[in-house]
Design a protein around this nucleic acid. Sequence first.
DNA 1: TGTAATAATGTAACCGGTTACTGTAACCGG
DNA 2: CCGGTTACAGTAACCGGTTACATTATTACA
Lengths: 323, 323
Amino acid sequence: MSVATVSRYINRNAPVSPEVAERISKVMAELNYVPHAAARHLATRKTRSIGLLLTTINYDFFTPLLSGLERIVAENHHNLLVATYRADLRKDYPPPVGPHNTDGVVVFADALQEEQLAQWYRMNFPMVLVHRTPPPYLNVPYVTIENKAASRKIVDHLIEVHGRRRIVFTRGLENHEDSHWRELGYKASLEAHGIPYDPRLIIRGEFDREVTYQEMSAFLANNHPDFDAVFASDDDSALGVIRALHDADIPVPEAVSVVGFDDQHFSCILPLPLTTVRAPTEEVGRMAGLQMFKLLQGEPADPMTLLPTEIVIRQSCGCSESQ
Amino acid sequence: MSVATVSRYINRNAPVSPEVAERISKVMAELNYVPHAAARHLATRKTRSIGLLLTTINYDFFTPLLSGLERIVAENHHNLLVATYRADLRKDYPPPVGPHNTDGVVVFADALQEEQLAQWYRMNFPMVLVHRTPPPYLNVPYVTIENKAASRKIVDHLIEVHGRRRIVFTRGLENHEDSHWRELGYKASLEAHGIPYDPRLIIRGEFDREVTYQEMSAFLANNHPDFDAVFASDDDSALGVIRALHDADIPVPEAVSVVGFDDQHFSCILPLPLTTVRAPTEEVGRMAGLQMFKLLQGEPADPMTLLPTEIVIRQSCGCSESQ
DNA sequence: TGTAATAATGTAACCGGTTACTGTAACCGG
DNA sequence: CCGGTTACAGTAACCGGTTACATTATTACA
């Protein structure tokens, strides 16, 4: 019984006689033998694992993303390497996942800079981008959600249904594409309704409850321009907004409508259930996984997977519960 | 310039002359060379990665756990393999992470069964358990939180401050130790106050908002015994409880006090801010990582890391806001 | 019965690093 | 000037699998 035969038995890629198979199977069970992954990787040049590169793991947002991706990865009998990397901070270090230890990586937002993407692209390393559009010269499949149209619709709602015209926008993270598109949707809606864009109504938020709370409080403290609504770039920052308004004794939604984005786990159970946009984050994870395995199997992946979003009208905009 | 010299340069484990170092460094930068992980793993018998074995990735709970662990892992220049495994469902398959592809694994709750733990223990494979106590004959370090004392305290609060005596407990997942300890705390409090334990007041919850909602609704529908409070095994199920009570027009907290456990992200911003127990989940992740690296460095790890919890009094128990 | 095809297994090179061992040259103290 | 370190670099075995190729046994068929 040679190592070759055992290998063939394990991989089922060549005939092995029943008696030998039986013997191998017994011995394996007895020794609790599991093939050493590194040796296989080295020999086959496949790691059977894929990487997920995140910027941080701060947001509840990541649970569904990870969950969706992990399911697909597991179904394909691969492993998932989760790592964080901020390209802007660690130019000296190579990314923790890449061609050296995975068969492909899923890159979230701006975890990698374009230069690195381009380099991996040139060497044909499988990549899928999530919540990020690749530069036009890089044909890398990406999975993201419809940000702009939904943002426009929710701002339309504020304007058309609630007659708001002075709408604050709390920006998400710099360099974060979602934030960018949401702002464009916001602007498109204003423009469509002939409302001038007022940069004084744009404040920082960074997709963070605390940061947004601070910024919103500062905004309220320094004789601010009039406003009658806030479009927060995500639900978490909407909470910061609401708290700041509450502190300032500004009634929500009577004086100021507040809407968010994402429809996070908590958004439907708030004191004032949040009007927001439902983002199918788990589906983003699943889709990214599916595209990745298409690439790994040599099939053509979809260049773009744009998942639909829908606005969810609750009460924080001023609509009544019965609606 | 031989491969050996390059290896020594990269690992800085033997002197290399400045000129040669310079040359190697240049060539490496030019080729964007990153050593192939599998080859190193094979040669060194170290994978430089650790595994995290979860049961599912359903709960927001996992974001802080993952975040804390990932930070420590990254600081130690290791990789993190995240996998799900339900020992009870997949007896035929070996766990997706283990000695074959990691240097150690962090095991959440009952992701692995005792037999597997014992086997790895015998081969001296580094493990750290989180939210689970190892069986007494297995000297595996574990990190968990104080469940029982805090549960007892929060039930004490219901009894002593609010005069509740008929307290429903919504169980968490079967086999999940946290649930078990929380129930023991509940019983201890009842006993200390001379309140008889009534099994009819124990209902299923599974740490899940929806399941708890269904179960609580069923409880309310079938001429149930009197009750005046609910201790939900986690905050998510507390939401299910509150919704069911709301559906049945039972005023919370006037007629029924509701308390939870975990102090999740959303708990402080609910319509009725939740009285609960703060669980330092991110710290659990960090500690598990620290213990793991102690093991990997051959230092003795702390057999038990019991992180303190504290009760957070808000309004769902009936306390007033000003408190 | 002889020969070719097929099934089952063994042999050994190879994947890309690490490292024990060896060799050479420079350096040092007496 | 010599024996002994020390600094540096090369050679080759090795890690644990996979797989091309070789070998032997078995079956099929003319």
